[in-house]
Nucleic acid binder design. Sequence first.
DNA 1: TGTCTTTTGTCAAGCATTCTTCATAAGTAG
DNA 2: CTACTTATGAAGAATGCTTGACAAAAGACA
Lengths: 407, 407
Amino acid sequence: MWFTEGMLTHAGQSLGAPHAGGLFQLLRDGLPRTRAELVTMTGLSRPTVAQRIDQLLELGLIAPVGDAVSTGGRPSSQFAFNPTARVVVAADFGASHARAAVTDLGGTMLAAHAEPRSIADGPEAALAWLTDTALRLLDDAGHVPTDVAGIGIGVPGPVEFSTGRPINPPIMPGWDRFDIPAAIHQTFDAPVLVDNDVNIMALGERTVAWADEDDLIFIKVATGIGAGVISGGSLRRGAQGAAGDIGHIALARASDVPCPCGNRGCIEAIASGKAVAHSLTRDGIAAETPSDVIALVKSGNVTAVQAVRQAGRDLGEVLTACVSLMNPAVIVIGGTMAQAAEHLVAGVREVVYARSIPLSTEHLTIAPSRAASDAAILGAAQLAIDAALSPERIAAALGLGVAVLSA
Amino acid sequence: MWFTEGMLTHAGQSLGAPHAGGLFQLLRDGLPRTRAELVTMTGLSRPTVAQRIDQLLELGLIAPVGDAVSTGGRPSSQFAFNPTARVVVAADFGASHARAAVTDLGGTMLAAHAEPRSIADGPEAALAWLTDTALRLLDDAGHVPTDVAGIGIGVPGPVEFSTGRPINPPIMPGWDRFDIPAAIHQTFDAPVLVDNDVNIMALGERTVAWADEDDLIFIKVATGIGAGVISGGSLRRGAQGAAGDIGHIALARASDVPCPCGNRGCIEAIASGKAVAHSLTRDGIAAETPSDVIALVKSGNVTAVQAVRQAGRDLGEVLTACVSLMNPAVIVIGGTMAQAAEHLVAGVREVVYARSIPLSTEHLTIAPSRAASDAAILGAAQLAIDAALSPERIAAALGLGVAVLSA
DNA sequence: TGTCTTTTGTCAAGCATTCTTCATAAGTAG
DNA sequence: CTACTTATGAAGAATGCTTGACAAAAGACA
């Protein structure tokens, strides 16, 4: 008599109720709610909900937002997530650029700065720049260092996420196994999350445009090609943090094209922005960088447009395999080359919809990035926000207040 | 002063402690533990641990296993998971076979039965057979229907896991959107879990041989080709439950080979057991089914061996893409054709290790299935066991006893 | 304006869960 | 056999949550 289906619904008291941080998690969507709504949503009693609300108000994490319309009696007051309670620091390091931003807990940018910087200058210089810039941006945004609830950092290489250390990054000399969180902790006393740049772009894109989708693959096409995989609602990093490294998947059409990785036929050697630029140069059209290709496409150069579309088709060949394996709901194309998104995406769609099995493509959306150049920095911010507002951390913040009283 | 790192460790009382089912989850690995060990592992106090132990003993979920060696004082008694407390029913339906088994909560098979059956006979006939067979096997194993804690079922087609309904299955006429759990509930009052056969094979293989790995891809090579993807410790089913359907990924070498799916160049059209059999037939060697190919390989037919090895290479091309995207720790090759595993795996390794990036392959294991023909049925059992022993369900079983007293 | 409705705030009492403390049991080492 | 060590069990105390009740607030409707 102890395992029948109905029992789960009868679980008494605290068992069925979400744990201490649960009420706040419900409010994180930003919608205002009344106390009564929260009582029914959480299953907690009125006094408990009232007490939690008081605590959260005191912490500033929620704020009253006017009254609801009366349904015949006293109008109920409403409360909503208050993203301005604290801030996070977000950083995005590229091969030749660096961005930093301060956002509130809703991911809204309060201050930002970007400048050309070589990642090859090493971690000490880069992280010193980051802390200096962050302190300045904090000041610009009218905040102090203790307002920082978390720091999210994206770097252009594989990262051991649990420790925040880059692992054998190919284009980050001096960064191998460098303890980034430890360096940041000398300035900021807040959780530091470090991840691959493509992963944070996937996170940023999802937050901005696809919050309801749990299965999303973000493709960055710039100098190289990489992917960020969100499956089951979370970033998948794989056994060594190398998931999404799709740049060196082989493509038949490119079988005679050498790639710097040592192999031949890599997708990156034929469909990346760099590869397209080179192929245009061979055709007598001067193009050095992905940006040059974009400029040509925007100026209406037919050869460039055709080259980008073909890159899209080539990419589509690889993405067909990704779709078959992961069955995502959305594929987002981002990175520099997504500035010519209409042509790139058209090529991808052409191949993916023709080749994949119907069940996988029936509800598959292939779209250019909406977060565009902000994807990375917003994703880094989101990484920090999710850590700062995790149920565990909120529960600790709430629980300690009580524990202090009792100690 | 409310977000500093240290706070999480100071969380008082119930906050830091695992929820009600936590203690039992620690014991599920089967190792015996003393009360004192559980106190330190869970962070709960001695009386609480003692009470939980008493409850679990009463439910039969754990059992005392002798005393530990004394360290100078009274020897402590030890307790371990008792897999014999209850049983689960596992079923594996193939295109032309059906298996059913009764296992204990440790996944040990107590009784099993297999017979040729066409899935095309429809769900009513198949599920009637299953319930009949399950009741008989239960009897054989000395158990009664109320001992059944869960039922796990694998079917050869895509399934909406949350509802247990097949979705547009290509080779299961009459099964589309059939409510399998509802049918089973007429006989058994226990949770019914239904999943794709390749998914449960992945689960079975992981349970049997790779329990420590959180990122595993299982490849089934039989009449067709499919994959089960375990990432981050859980099966990934994708947006429509179609994840792992890799049979129709395109391969350059096969670009002129038509596939029943309507496209050309599908991996399944060149590397599946059926495809290899056909190619051997074209070479004048009579082979109809994957089993025929296996027989030829085992008899030392060189052409057959070469064909299987080439199929492995072709499969390796596709798996290279999978490795790049997901960065698994293990790739397991199973299915009928894995009976010629040494040749198939050799071909896969040849290509994957040559083509993939070092970081992904450095710690990548490619191995034949160890669970072999039991993978599916053991995976189905594991699916049911995981559901039956989930923290939520254990908490309910433990918590309700208390709730009843207070009601 | 007065009454009704609905929401909110607050208090007291009861209960469940867990922790702390103390007493007892069951071994080992000399 | 005694002293010591460790495990076990039971009673008391504290905490947090729920239930229930009641009064106050604020608008709707007659």
